[in-house]
C-alpha cells in the first residue's frame, strides 16, 4: 500500500509535528501566561489598574492575532533567522508559531482569569494579600480548570498552524501533505496525513478536557 520509505517519512512527520506543536505551545505559554495576567490585572476593574499598559499590550496582541498566519510566517523570516540561524526545518517553524500563538494564549489566559469570582479576590485582599500573592494563590489555582481547557484548545490550534508551516519548509505532517499529496497528486498520502492530524487533534483535545474535568474540585461528589 505504502512504500516503507513513505511509512518512515510519515513516522518522522508525526514526530516533527509533535515536536513543533509541543515546543511552540510550551514557549507560547511562557510568554502568554504573563501577558494574559498583565492584560487581566491592568484592566479597568483589575487589581493593578493601568490603562496605558493595558491598551498598548492589548493593541499588540490584537495586531498579531489579526495577521494571517501564512503572512506572518513569511513576514518574520529575518527575525526567525536571527533567532535560530535558519528559516527551514521544524525548529525554524517554532519561531513564527510562538509569535502567532503567544497572543492567542494571552487572550485565552485572560478570559480564564476573568472567570474567577471577584469575591475571591476581594476576600484575599481583605486578608492582606499582595497582588503577587493573589495571582499565585488565588487567580491561577482557581482558574486551573479553565486554563486547562484553554490549553487543549491552544495546542490543537497550534497543531493546525504547524501544518501550515509545511508550506515554507517547516517539516512535519503538513510538509508531507503538501510535498507528496498536493504537489505530486498523491491523494492517498494526502488522506493519510490528514487522518493522522485528525487523530492527534482528537487525542490532545480529549486528554486536555479529561484532565481539566478530573482536576476540577468544584465537581467532586
Amino acid at each position: 500500500m505504502l512504500s516503507s520509505g513513505m511509512i518512515n517519512e510519515l513516522i518522522k512527520g508525526i514526530f516533527e509535528t509533535l515536536y513543533m506543536t509541543v515546543t511552540s505551545t510550551a514557549i507560547a505559554y511562557v510568554f502568554g501566561i504573563p501577558m494574559g495576567i498583565v492584560l487581566y490585572i491592568t484592566d479597568k476593574n483589575g487589581i493593578c489598574r493601568n490603562r496605558p499598559v493595558n491598551m498598548i499590550l492589548g493593541f499588540i496582541v490584537n495586531v498579531l492575532r489579526s495577521v494571517p498566519f501564512l503572512i506572518l510566517l513569511v513576514a518574520i523570516l529575518p527575525f526567525t533567522r536571527l533567532v535560530v540561524g535558519t528559516t527551514i526545518g521544524s525548529t525554524a517553524a517554532i519561531v513564527p508559531l510562538v509569535v502567532a500563538a503567544a497572543p492567542f494564549v494571552a487572550r485565552m489566559v485572560e478570559s480564564s482569569l476573568k472567570e474567577v469570582s471577584g469575591g475571591l479576590i476581594e476576600a484575599a485582599q481583605s486578608m492582606g494579600a499582595s497582588p503577587m500573592q493573589i495571582i499565585m494563590k488565588v487567580l491561577l489555582p482557581e482558574a486551573r480548570p479553565s486554563l486547562l481547557v484553554g490549553f487543549a484548545i491552544a495546542i490543537t490550534t497550534i497543531l493546525g498552524y504547524s501544518a501550515m508551516a509545511g508550506f515554507v519548509g517547516g517539516g512535519g505532517l503538513g510538509a508531507i501533505a503538501i510535498n507528496y499529496g498536493y504537489y505530486r497528486y498523491n491523494n492517498r498520502v494526502m488522506l493519510i496525513t490528514v487522518l493522522l492530524l485528525v487523530i492527534i487533534v482528537q487525542i490532545l483535545q480529549e486528554v486536555g478536557m479529561r484532565v481539566a474535568t478530573r482536576t476540577d474540585n468544584r465537581i467532586k461528589n
Partner: peptide, 27 residues
C-alpha cells in the same frame, strides 16, 4: 481586620483545611 461575606468566597479548588491555611500562607 478579617471579613466574611454573603457569598462565602471560599477557594473552590482548595479543601476546607487548605482554605483556613490560606491567610496563614499569606502571612
Amino acid at each position: 481586620i478579617s471579613m466574611i461575606f454573603q457569598g462565602f468566597n471560599l477557594l473552590e479548588q482548595r479543601t476546607a483545611l487548605k482554605n483556613v491555611c490560606f491567610p496563614l500562607e499569606i502571612a
